[in-house]
């Protein structure tokens, strides 16, 4: 493989450039995936049947904690990529590890939130509203879970193989994914929670 040294490592080879563009297009598809969930959510938002409405079950504290955790993790992975571009392998791995820990904490709070919903009678099968609420949050949560494993694998590879065009490329693409999950969360935070509690 030819390597172009004038560009950051993750853009170094032709295949790397393909991977990055391909991943951006995948993110375009993800935009539509979440848009469809949002469209469904907004349609069913007030169709609560005999179950509770959003305002009755949402709690600001865990939601705010989740938001701060995810925003910070988006920041730390940004720092990780910055460190990677400076060639600082250890700093980069540390930032990635911190990101994953923050993601893990986010997931923990989300699991707490879910058990809380079930507890107050807003389980998956209660109404159209609860069904789509938990499906939408669950889809985002599943993405975060996949991200945790993926990120872990990448840290392992960087540790073992060092910063090569290949591992740098994977790390950069993972950072795109993670930032994207943060963007999705911003919309969930604004238009599911805050709109529901307004």
């Amino acid at each position: 493989m030819k390597t172009d040294n004038s560009l950051p490592l993750e853009y170094g080879t032709e295949q790397n450039k393909l991977n990055i563009l391909g991943f951006w297009i995948f993110l375009g598809a993800e935009v539509m995936l979440f848009a469809t969930l949002f469209a469904t959510y907004f349609t069913l938002e007030h169709r609560t049947g005999s179950g509770p409405a959003g305002a009755e079950i949402f709690e600001i504290t865990p939601v705010l904690i989740e938001t701060i955790l995810l925003l910070t993790s988006s920041f730390t992975i940004g720092l990780g990529v910055h460190a990677m571009r400076l060639g600082r392998k250890n700093a980069m791995m540390t930032f990635f590890a911190v990101t994953l820990l923050l993601g893990l904490a986010f997931l923990g709070v989300e699991i707490y939130e879910f058990t809380h919903y079930v507890h107050v009678g807003a389980g998956l099968q209660v109404s159209a509203f609860t069904g789509i609420l938990l499906t939408t949050l669950g889809t985002h949560g599943a993405h975060v879970t996949v991200g945790l494993f993926w990120g872990l694998f990448i840290i392992m590879q960087v540790k073992k193989r060092g910063l090569t065009p290949e591992t740098a490329n994977k790390s950069f693409i993972f950072s795109l994914y993670w930032h994207f999950l943060d963007v999705v969360w911003i919309f969930i935070f604004s238009f599911i929670y805050l709109k529901g509690m307004m």
Binding site: I25, G28, A29, V31, M32, F34, A35
Partner: peptide, 23 residues
């Protein structure tokens, strides 16, 4: 930042436009 800037932005704008139309 990359040479595929146009493709990336076209992709994102198209996605957002269609997403808004759908919603």
């Amino acid at each position: 930042e990359s040479e595929d800037k146009v493709a990336i932005y076209a992709n994102i704008y198209y996605g957002i436009a269609i997403a808004l139309v759908t919603i």
